[in-house]
Design a protein around this nucleic acid. Structure first.
Lengths: 187, 187
DNA sequence: AGCTTTTAGCTAACGACGTTAGCCAGAGCT
DNA sequence: AGCTCTGGCTAACGTCGTTAGCTAAAAGCT
């Protein structure tokens, strides 16, 4: 019986890809094992179990999201940066709904939890956007939370099919970004 | 063996309450059966299964949320209405995180699905808030989606423990409402 | 009241899934 | 070559959702 040459990284990557296809709820150990060409129990040589797998997928997702947002913002400031960041974030969630869904409802276990550091990196990317506006120090955290709530809420609602009427969703998103930009500049 | 006197409504109500206690993921048929004083298979006399139960809990949650928001808005307009609606919505989600979580990722099966009507009622309540502002007809849907994204995003992030730093969360929420109010009035 | 029909509860059983235990062979090192 | 480590396997168990089929309580009818 030839070896499959797996390691934790490969398993997590495959799990994330599978989650994007079948949804985080449909991600089963058996399905993942089949996908990577191995029997179910063998997965436990690489990840601690389903909860551990979920956490690792979430950390990967947040890290990738941070890269996407951070990269998109490069070279822009103010409104352009906000637009780029918001679009990049939403695009990421829509392209990878499963792995992003894995991030919901998880608490980092400690300061050196990969989940915490990835989450911080994503926040830092958004913080960089806010630096392009004239925001009082005391307002930065509030603005950051608002930005995060907006992006998270919009993206997850759309990914879940939560917007029902026919009004164009992309248009709504651009409208929402413009609205936020005006508000931030008026601070 | 005396009867327990259950009906679908009672089962769904108990399920929603249980979901608030143990989380939607921890809501198991066995646990619910024990809670209502019956063996697991008996639940299937009242609900079609776990998915059906989930949908019914979601419909209940949306209906209750619509009542809460609609009631809170009564007699207010403009900023006061926005504040009342947003607070009522967030309070509902924080008090009933489990049943609200049941609403995520569900698509109504048709126009007479209770889920659809409840969802519409909630949207109507927020639409009423927007009527207190001077918003162009073409912008109403965008503004509605923004409001929904904001409330949904903020409430779910907080319910999931997603805000890490020490800045006061209530304060952030009030800041966010004020920000939105200013933006809406500037339209 | 007595008879019939419906139905809400039960036990038994199955299938899917996550997980653990324990074995074995391939890969790498000395 | 031989030793060790490790990544794969099979077997088995527990939990959970679900279905089938039985029975007794309730409800309806005459």
């Amino acid at each position: 019986m030839p070896r499959a040459g797996l390691d934790p990284t490969a398993v997590v990557a495959a799990g994330a890809a599978l989650a994007d296809e079948v949804g985080i709820a449909g991600l089963t150990m058996g399905l993942l094992a089949e996908r990577v060409g191995v029997r179910t129990p063998s997965l436990y040589k690489h990840v601690g179990g389903q909860e551990d797998l979920n956490r690792r997928i979430a950390a990967l997702a947040l890290s990738e999201a941070a890269d996407a947002v951070g990269g998109a913002v490069q070279g822009y400031a103010g409104r352009d940066a906000l637009v780029a960041a918001a679009r990049a974030f939403r695009a990421f969630v829509l392209e990878h709904p499963g792995r992003y869904a894995a991030t919901i409802g998880l608490e980092p276990s400690g300061p050196d939890d990969p989940l915490a550091t990835a989450s911080e990196r994503l926040l830092d990317a958004f913080t960089a956007v806010l630096r392009g506006y004239d925001i009082a120090e005391s307002d930065v955290n509030h603005a950051l939370r608002m930005l995060r709530s907006l992006c998270h809420g919009f993206a997850t609602l759309q990914a879940a099919g939560g917007f029902q009427w026919s009004t164009d969703i992309d248009e709504s998103f651009e409208w929402l970004i413009a609205f936020t930009d005006r508000g931030l500049r008026a601070l």
